[in-house]
């Protein structure tokens, strides 16, 4: 964690709280990468470590590789014993069926709309409150922060039933707002933004005030532009969380027009298509590939985020 913070090319000082999160101060002098050239360590012992790691890597990644390859196979080939690895005759049949017969285009759009809306809401609202909690003085601040933090510990299953009743009474069952509204803000987002903004110099605030800027303008024009790293982390985590969210959409989305991708895939894998293996593998690939792309594009930021917050 300390290394990732040090390496980050941001001009902004890292938030205090990310340092020594686990109760100790970072080693200030030791550069990364020298770890392995340890006194008295045996270079000869390394190759087998690489061997074991590679085997593990294969075991971890193989299911994904098999999924993607399988999505190009014919039904007959998928049922062969023993299973094949490379497709004998690769075809896009499964994908064309997915989008023509099963309407995966709609589910894909729904997933995108929900994930983008949820992400935008979290970025905006959580940074607003995060800034207020970190930089401003107001009555009820301590109480508000305590309540928000307390809910971090409450498992989702506790709010599930009343939340469903609430959304049902508001007439939002089977609508996209019903999928979006309950997730627009998160205590975790507030925590993350507050921690980051606390690390920014307070002089910024005073400088803005001297220049006559109002508090909201200071937030929008001075603070927010400096929050890039924290916003990136929160944005990626929220997007992936929303994209993969399963239980709530399963209950609220009740017709094909509001299904998200995971819901559609889960229902098809249990319904009449449950024996259509090629279709299911193609569906799984469509669910996984976008997050894979987002992840690969931002993985550095992402892993920094995990390391500093500890929450996926």
């Amino acid at each position: 964690m300390t290394t990732t913070t040090d390496k980050a090319t941001t001009p902004v000082p890292a938030p205090k709280s990310t340092r020594g999160r686990f109760g100790r101060t970072p080693r200030p002098t030791e550069p990364v990468g020298t770890n392995a050239t340890m006194a008295g360590s045996k270079q000869s012992s390394r190759w087998w470590l690489y061997g074991i790691l590679s085997l593990c890597l294969v075991a971890v990644v193989a299911p994904f590789a098999w999924m993607v390859l399988g999505s190009f196979k014919s039904e007959g080939e998928l049922r062969q014993t023993p299973p094949t690895w490379w497709p004998h005759s690769a075809s896009l049949d499964n994908y064309t069926q997915l989008f023509s017969r099963l309407d995966f285009g709609t589910y894909f759009t729904n997933s995108i709309v929900v994930a983008v809306a949820v992400t935008a809401g979290n970025l905006l609202f959580c940074s607003m409150l995060g800034y207020a909690l970190a930089m401003l003085d107001f009555k009820g601040k301590k109480a508000l922060f305590s309540i928000v933090m307390a809910t971090l510990m409450i498992p989702g299953v506790v709010t599930f039933v009343p939340l469903f009743v609430l959304v049902a009474n508001a007439g939002l069952i089977d609508t996209l707002p019903g999928l979006i509204l309950p997730f627009l803000v998160s205590p975790f987002g507030v925590f993350l933004m507050r921690q980051f903004i606390s690390g920014l110099p307070r002089d910024l605030l005073d400088a803005g005030r001297v220049d006559g800027a109002g508090e909201l303008r200071i937030f929008a024009r001075i603070i927010l532009p400096l929050c890039g790293p924290a916003l990136a982390t929160l944005g990626i985590l929220t997007f992936l969380g929303s994209w993969n969210n399963f239980l709530w959409p399963l209950v609220v989305a009740q017709s094909e027009k509001t299904y998200t991708l995971p819901v559609a895939l889960a229902l098809y894998s249990k319904g009449q298509n449950s024996t259509n293996y090629g279709l299911l593998l193609a569906g799984a690939t469509v669910v996984v590939i976008p997050v894979l792309a987002v992840f690969l594009a931002f993985q550095r930021k992402f892993i920094e985020g995990i390391a500093t917050t500890g929450i996926k």
Partner: peptide, 28 residues
Amino acid sequence: GEGRAAWILALPFCLLFLTFTVWPVIQS
């Protein structure tokens, strides 16, 4: 001014949070 600005900034979060988290916890 600071206190008022803080509550304006906090308001959207608080409304959503009270409706979709605090209220369900109590009702549960």
